[in-house]
């Protein structure tokens, strides 16, 4: 059985299609990244999966249950961290974790959970006095307090500093190790590449590609590059004949080799065989951002946070 299944989901706001036919299939224990620019329909999609918004058409199933009809069962199985959602401002970390714990048939131990998200020192601090990163970690703790089988995390590291971000990534990696299914909405390439088994690329309310990060990069048909410097003259023919190589460019003492497969090993072996001394050799692989650019026509990086 699939942990989450969405078929032909559509949602219109006014005369704009926020989501224009999204299909998703997430296996149990999988971490699926939902990646896209602002306004691509990511949040609307997960809000429909979470049962917060009703789709205009299409169906959603969470562990085989309908989030609207089987609302009570789904609420027990699904943990949600919402974008920009506040909590009772004057309650402390530990009061909030305990409060939310009472909503579930089986809740996690409050102390252990607070420890797991690294808030033990702040457990008696009010929500309103926590830093952005601490509030975000508390928000994740509340998504996990009911020991859910599926968790939705919406833009969980937006606006955080790199250290807070890495801390939260470690928490998500812990969920993955525990076999929890995670839907991770993000527009951060690094986050998605590090955490996700598979990525659904959303653009204009549609899934334009769905694959593993490596698969998406491969599907985009972007080759790898090996760059190095040589001392003295260099004959392109030395490596151009290799099966892995598609092109070789020489500018002064700098050489750039385009190709695919096990390019670095093939080039290195050939250089050693020809007695060429290569310096500063490095392999440049296309990133998910390069793939995103190739698949949607626009880059995602350097876009302002939501």
């Amino acid at each position: 059985m699939l942990a989450v299944r969405a078929d032909a989901l559509r949602k219109r706001y006014g005369d704009r299609d926020a989501v224009a036919g999204v299909d998703l299939a997430v296996g149990e224990g999988e971490v699926l990244g939902i990646l896209g620019r602002n306004g691509a329909g990511k949040t609307t999609t997960v809000e429909m999966i979470a049962g917060l918004r009703r789709p205009d058409s299409g169906t959603v199933q969470v562990l085989g249950l309908d989030p609207w009809r089987d609302r009570r069962r789904v609420r027990q199985l699904l943990g949600v961290q919402l974008q920009e959602s506040e909590l009772h401002a004057a309650l402390t970390v530990s009061e909030l974790v305990r409060l939310y714990g009472t909503f579930y048939a089986q809740s996690a131990d409050a102390g252990e959970l607070i420890e797991a998200v690294g808030l033990t020192e702040q457990r008696d601090v009010r929500f309103e006095r926590l830093s952005g990163g601490q509030q975000q970690r508390l928000s994740i703790a509340l998504a996990l307090v009911g020991q859910p089988r599926v968790v939705i995390l919406d833009e969980l590291t937006t606006g955080l500093d790199p250290e807070a971000r890495r801390h939260i990534w470690a928490i998500v990696e812990g969920m993955r190790d525990d076999g929890v299914t995670v839907l991770l909405v993000s527009h951060l390439m690094e986050e998605v590449e590090r955490l996700c088994d598979r990525v659904a690329l959303l653009d204009g309310g549609r899934v334009v590609a769905q694959d593993s990060p490596a698969g998406l990069i491969a599907a985009a048909g972007l080759g790898q590059r090996v760059r190095f410097r040589v001392a003295g003259a260099f004959d392109r023919g030395t490596i151009l004949a290799l099966a892995e190589v598609t092109d070789v460019q020489v500018r002064g003492d700098r050489v750039t080799v385009h190709g695919s497969g096990d390019l670095l090993a093939a080039v290195s072996t050939a250089l050693v065989g020809a007695g060429v001394v290569a310096m500063e050799t490095r392999l440049e692989q296309p990133t998910l951002d390069d793939a995103f650019l190739a698949l949607t026509g626009r880059s995602l990086e350097h876009e302002g946070a939501a």
Binding site: R75, L78, L82, E84, S85, E86, A89, Y100, Y104, L142
Partner: peptide
């Protein structure tokens, strides 16, 4: 502030 929205995704 979204407190009601947040509660809306719990069993409460």
């Amino acid at each position: 502030s979204g407190v009601l929205r947040r509660l809306g995704v719990t069993p409460a």
